[in-house]
Design a protein around this nucleic acid. Structure first.
Length: 624
DNA sequence: GCAAGGTC
């Protein structure tokens, strides 16, 4: 009998895609008992040396199999002082709803020579792989464990991954395991402490869970930070000089190189020097080709930001819609950090699939007829998934309103990536007037290229400038002072918040939207609609509770050496750096867990000691 | 009743 090999992917969709490629399309599907999503696919495959021709069962998990929790006697909120949660014993158990999946793996492992792990090639995937291995080993202690390394589900790539397996990366799995333990201990300890302490402070807090999380608090912190900047803003008056020339029936406005200054007397004096000089002299006439670059291949964060901005769909809804388009086979996997296409992907074939579309089909045909360009490459590659792109064409009539918008966006973005940059010509004129420099700029768009399909970008010709000669002199038609006021920043919008989270390493592409909805659910943040109709903007504003928590924690650590408030992203960032050290093998999991716990424990002790400050902040905002 | 991370 042929040897048997068990393959396990991170999710059902990957199991199916990999089984399809490995089997050449002919496999048997078996349902498993107790879970409707996970299937076992059976087929034969020749792995080459040393495994040779084998019979294969390809199955999957559904994300993590296990969860970490405190032992039973520490689960009650009154069972121990919250500080004990920094050391209380914890257990890793298979989640209740994952029991049938774990059992399936143990059963299949029993008759298998080897286990091939096909989880995503990222840190979490490595950990999920170790969970799968543990189950397989408990079904068959002698099973050999290998890992398939793949970054997309293109056929040749998958086959090569099957024939050149590597080993699980224990370092990465350990880093995740450290993250899991830290998130649990720190989240539970602070949540219990602040909930139990603050519920008594104000009637409105009585039944509330006031949660703390190393991601949700910095998320709240960003919102509060902007809010306070808006509240504390004091407008300042500024002055500037503008110069205008009428020539060939056109008005040319020259802008001041200094933009504006905050001292009126100085600006007046400078203008007087200009006027005294009478003539301005042209010091630069530059005509140069200018292009507007086509967009980068689409990542999750970009999809969420663009979605909020142009499609007017909040980031969590966007992800749900994208997920459903993915499940139906219309777009690629929507959770990716990669903004570069792998050379192995046949992009032209994907473009051709869009031919039937009534709106952009002709554009796609023009690309294939000679306008196709290889997409730009960004600097990110998660080595797990390609950029988001359409994988098949679907008629808009078979999609609901949001699906249609998201599919259209993903497709237009993809076609834009495969297009040429927009090209134009810019003209820069610089003049010296007295001692001051001014400039005027003109733009002529010559070829729209990608802009024709990517309707979300705007780039338009400005009014054309009349002719200027280098060195020529002229008397400006007008030169005078203008006055203005600095304006307050706006409240934070969701795309801006996602940008901040991304830049500060708060959450992952898959979870940022969840953290935002969590701070709304906890009533730390509310959404306010400014303006109306198509120009309306949704702003994030902290509630009184949200402001109180941030102010309270800022006060708790104020004046302490190395004070790092929980409302800031730094503690989380440091934790992330330590995890990278575990991945590199320079630190062990337990070293990192201890170090990070020490760091948070210090803040915890200060918080307990100065709990009155936290309570006072809540009283200030929540008790009239 | 707590977290964040996978995914359905």
């Amino acid at each position: 009998m042929a040897r048997k090999i068990l393959c396990v992917a991170e999710k059902p969709a990957i199991a199916r895609a990999v089984a399809t490629h490995m089997s050449g399309g002919s496999f048997q599907t078996h349902a498993i008992r107790g879970n409707q999503y996970v299937k076992n696919y059976e087929f034969d495959f020749n792995f080459g040396d040393p495994w040779g021709h084998c019979s294969v069962t390809m199955t999957s998990v559904i994300g993590h199999l296990t969860g970490l929790d405190f032992e039973r006697q520490y689960k009650g909120w009154q069972s121990c002082p919250p500080s004990v949660l920094f050391e209380a014993p914890v257990n890793e158990d298979v989640d209740k709803d994952k029991l049938p999946i774990a059992e399936n793996i143990r059963n299949q492992a029993r008759y298998s020579k080897a286990l091939f792990i096909w989880t995503d090639c990222d840190r979490e995937g490595e950990h999920i792989g170790s969970e799968v291995r543990n189950q397989a080993k408990s079904g068959n202690a002698r099973i050999e464990v290998k890992r398939a390394k793949f970054s997309n589900t293109e056929r040749a790539h998958v086959l090569r991954a099957a024939r050149e397996p590597v080993d699980l990366d224990e370092y990465q799995a350990n880093a995740v395991s450290a993250r899991i333990e830290l998130d649990l201990r720190i989240g539970a300890a602070f949540t219990r402490l602040q909930t139990l302490q603050l519920q008594a402070v104000a009637a409105v807090l009585k039944e509330k869970v006031i949660s703390y999380g190393s991601c949700q608090f910095p998320t709240l912190g960003f919102v509060v930070d902007r809010y306070l900047r808006v509240q504390n803003f004091k407008p300042e008056t500024f002055w500037g000089i503008k110069v205008m020339l009428q020539r060939e029936g056109k008005k040319v406005n020259f802008l001041w190189k200094r933009v504006h200054l905050f001292d009126r007397a100085v600006v007046t004096m400078m203008l007087e020097r200009c006027l005294a000089a009478k003539e301005a002299k042209v010091t630069k006439v530059a005509q140069k080709p200018k292009s507007k670059w086509r967009p980068l291949p689409l990542t999750t964060v970009d999809l969420q930001m663009m979605g909020s901005r142009y499609l007017r769909i909040d980031s969590q809804t966007i992800m749900k819609v994208a997920e459903s388009l993915y499940t139906k086979g219309f777009i690629s996997y929507p959770r990716t950090e990669t903004d570069q296409f792998d050379k192995a992907i046949d992009l032209k074939k994907l473009v051709e699939k869009q031919f039937p579309d009534t709106e952009w089909g002709q554009y796609a045909r023009d690309l294939i007829d000679g306008n196709f360009r290889t997409p730009r490459s960004g600097r990110h590659n998660d080595k797990a998934h390609p950029p988001i792109h359409p994988v098949s064409w679907v008629s808009s009539s078979s999609l609901n309103a949001n699906e249609k918008k998201v599919y259209e966006f993903v497709t237009r973005r993809f076609l834009a990536c495969c297009s040429d940059d927009a090209k134009g010509q810019s003209t820069d004129i610089e003049i010296l007037y007295g001692d001051e420099t001014f400039h005027a700029n003109g733009l002529l768009v010559l070829e729209r290229n990608y802009l024709d399909v990517y309707v979300y970008d705007k780039w338009e010709s400005s009014q054309q400038l009349p002719k200027f000669e280098y060195g020529e002199k002229f008397v400006p038609t007008e030169a005078n002072i203008f006055e203005g006021k600095t304006t307050a920043p706006n409240y934070l919008t969701e795309p801006e918040l996602i940008g901040l989270m991304d830049a500060n390493g708060i959450g992952t592409d898959a979870t940022m939207a969840e953290h935002i909805s969590k701070v709304k659910e906890r009533e730390y943040v509310v959404v306010n609609k400014r303006g109306s109709g198509r120009t309306s903007v949704e702003e994030l504003i902290p509630t009184r509770l949200g402001v109180a928590l941030v102010e309270g924690y800022d006060n708790v650590v104020a004046g302490l050496p190395n004070s790092i408030s929980l409302s800031k992203p730094f503690l989380r960032k440091e934790m992330e750096l330590r995890m990278l050290e575990v991945c590199a093998g320079t630190k062990t999991k337990s070293e990192v867990v201890q170090q990070s716990l020490d760091m948070y424990r210090e803040v915890f002790i200060h918080t307990q000691r100065r709990i009155e400050m936290l309570k006072a902040a809540c009283r200030k905002y929540l008790v009239d």
